[in-house]
C-alpha cells in the first residue's frame, strides 16, 4: 500500500495540489460521517457497551466470539453465500448487457428497468412472491423439488439446499444495478474499435474476448469487488426466509451483528463482530485487488 518514492516535477506538484481540491468534498464527508463512526465503532468493540453503561473489557468480546459456535456457523454460511452470489452477480449481468447491447433503446431500457425493479419492489410483495414460489407447504418451486427428491424433502431444513436457493434469490434480486453499470461501460466503448476489428476479420468471439472484456476490465474489477463486499453483507433475505435457522446454519455474520445489537442490546459485542467482518472483507478485497491488478487498458 505504501507509495514508492516518486519524484514530482513542478508541474506535477501543481497538479497534485489540485488533486486535493478535487478530493476535498469527499474527504470532508469521510471525516465527519465515516472516520468518526468507524473509529468509534472500533473503540466500542473493546467495551461491554450496553444501555446505560460502557466499560473497557479489552479483548473479551473477541474471545467470546471465537469460542461461539454461532459465529463459526454464520461465517461458514456467509462464505457459502458469497461463493454462489458473487460469480452470479459478476457474469449474469455481463451476459445480459452484452446480449441486449444489440437492441434499440426501447427494449434495452425495458430490460434494465425490469432487472432493476425487484430492488425497488416493497418487501411485502417480495415476501409474498417468495412464499408463492418457495413455501414448503404450497410453493410451486418446492412442489417441483419434492417431485424430484421425494415428498419429505424440505429445502430449508439443511444448509446445503437452503443456502443455494437463497443465494440465487439474492443474486437475481440485485441484477439491475450491475447490469446498468455494464451497459454504461459497454456504451462508452468507441464503435470504431469493432469496425476496425471486423475489417481485420475478427470473429464475434474474438471481438468479445479481445475488445469488450479487456476494455471493460476496470468495470469488471469494480463489480467483482463490490459484489464480494455486498455478498459478505447479506442480511435481509436470509432473515425473511429462514431467520438464519436451523440453528444458525443459514445465518450470516451481519445477521448476528443485528441481533446482538437490537436483540440483546450488546453494542460492544456487535461492534466486535463488525470489526471482524470488516477485516474478513478487507482480506478478500485485497486478494482481489492483487489478482486483478494489471496495466489499465485505455482506448
Amino acid at each position: 500500500m505504501n507509495p514508492k518514492k516518486q519524484k514530482y516535477t513542478p508541474r506535477e506538484r501543481y497538479k497534485a495540489r489540485w488533486a486535493y481540491v478535487f478530493l476535498a468534498p469527499w474527504l470532508l464527508m469521510f471525516l465527519i460521517f465515516y472516520a468518526y463512526p468507524l473509529i468509534y465503532g472500533t473503540i466500542v468493540s473493546f467495551t461491554n457497551y450496553t444501555i446505560g453503561s460502557m466499560k473497557w473489557i479489552g479483548l473479551e468480546n473477541y474471545r467470546t466470539i471465537f469460542t461461539d459456535y454461532r459465529f463459526w456457523r454464520s461465517l461458514r454460511a456467509t462464505i457459502f453465500y458469497m461463493l454462489i452470489v458473487m460469480p452470479l452477480q459478476v457474469f449474469v449481468p455481463l451476459w445480459i448487457a452484452n446480449t441486449i447491447q444489440a437492441y434499440k433503446r426501447g427494449f434495452n431500457t425495458a430490460v434494465k428497468l425490469v432487472a432493476y425493479i425487484p430492488g425497488v419492489t416493497c418487501s411485502v410483495a417480495l415476501v409474498l412472491a417468495w412464499r408463492f414460489m418457495l413455501d414448503p407447504n404450497i410453493g410451486f418451486v418446492t412442489s417441483f423439488l419434492k417431485k424430484i427428491f421425494g415428498a419429505r424433502f424440505s429445502p430449508f431444513n439443511t444448509a446445503s439446499t437452503a443456502i443455494p436457493i437463497i443465494a440465487v434469490l439474492i443474486a437475481f434480486t440485485n441484477l439491475g444495478a450491475t447490469l446498468i453499470i455494464y451497459s454504461a461501460a459497454l456504451n462508452a466503448i468507441p464503435a470504431d474499435y469493432y469496425e476496425a476489428a471486423e475489417l481485420d476479420g475478427a470473429t464475434r468471439w474474438d471481438q468479445l474476448t479481445k475488445i469488450t472484456i479487456p476494455l471493460l476490465q476496470p468495470t469488471i474489477v469494480y463489480v467483482f469487488i463490490t459484489s464480494t463486499i455486498g455478498a459478505l453483507q447479506i442480511f435481509v433475505i436470509p432473515q425473511l426466509m429462514t431467520q438464519g435457522g436451523p440453528n444458525f446454519m443459514t445465518s450470516t455474520v451481519l445477521l448476528l451483528i443485528y441481533s446482538a445489537a437490537f436483540g440483546d442490546n450488546k453494542f460492544g459485542y456487535a461492534s466486535a463482530l463488525g470489526v471482524i467482518l470488516f477485516l474478513i472483507t478487507a482480506i478478500f478485497a485485497l486478494i482481489q485487488f492483487r489478482i486483478t491488478r494489471r496495466e489499465t487498458v485505455e482506448y
Binding site: A35, I39, Y40, I43, V44, T47, Y49, G52
Partner: peptide, 20 residues
Amino acid sequence: MILVVSMLGACGGAQGGGSA
C-alpha cells in the same frame, strides 16, 4: 491528527451516550 481528534471525540461521545 485526524485519528487523535476522532478518538477524543469518540470518548466524549461514549460518555454522553453512556451516562444519563
